[in-house]
Design a protein around this nucleic acid. Sequence first.
DNA 1: CGTAGTCGATTACGGATGTAAACGGTGAGG
DNA 2: CCTCACCGTTTACATCCGTAATCGACTACG
Lengths: 134, 134
Amino acid sequence: MASEGERISEAEHAVMEALWSRSPLTAAEVCEEVCASRDWTLATVKTLLSRLVVKNAVKTEADGKRFLYSPVLKRGNYLGGESRRLVDRLFGGRAAPLFAHLAETEALSDRDIAEIEALLETLKSQGQVGGEGR
Amino acid sequence: MASEGERISEAEHAVMEALWSRSPLTAAEVCEEVCASRDWTLATVKTLLSRLVVKNAVKTEADGKRFLYSPVLKRGNYLGGESRRLVDRLFGGRAAPLFAHLAETEALSDRDIAEIEALLETLKSQGQVGGEGR
DNA sequence: CGTAGTCGATTACGGATGTAAACGGTGAGG
DNA sequence: CCTCACCGTTTACATCCGTAATCGACTACG
């Protein structure tokens, strides 16, 4: 299935976000996007981009002398994978306890509650969500 | 405030789980608990325990020549912190999108849905949930 | 045609992590 | 008393991550 097993680090993730929001981009453009908030130099961004290419999360496309970088890994896949990892590792693979914790630590706003309620409605009417946790 | 800023790594977390489920324990007992699944040696467990002591996540209590280890960091705090970190980093601090993703990737079982629904009820009747998403 | 700038690639390096062996003290059994 | 087993501590070392400087190739300007 060619499912990439390479993990994306936190710093690399910042670069991915830039590419997800707009691509293809040159290294310099990526830097413009992220060096502001993270306080990195162009050199750092280049390193991260190379590592991401090696990890098959980003691909390059030659444009004259330089490269244009685009994401290969889909944002949804990444988010899904990371979320799942957390739920599996900390909550035995079940989402309900995670939810309980977020609620306890006041990480749920009224807006979240409303949205989640709506989501549950949709799920229920659609019916058929994975039966067992796994 | 005394909020410990020390991060707990994944391997260290496995040791914490052992101590959360039963404590105090000797190093050997912790190993009995975790070395099975993780395929570690006692030496590895000792290293992890020391690091956790340094990080103030575990405390020791002398029992003759050897130590008994107990958790200092509360499980709830750890889970809360990690969950929050994920939500902040990947979902802009809001829990609703995380749930949307878990739902999409079929990580929500029927049981989860029922439990979450019940939880929402409780929250709503209690009212007063943190207004802003932090 | 030579020189300066720009690119990606290579190399660097300190700290964290995973994994473990070696070391030194000490209590128990002979 | 001496030795052995066991304990926590120290040391080890490869990999990953964050962060970056340097290098070699090539282009574009003068």
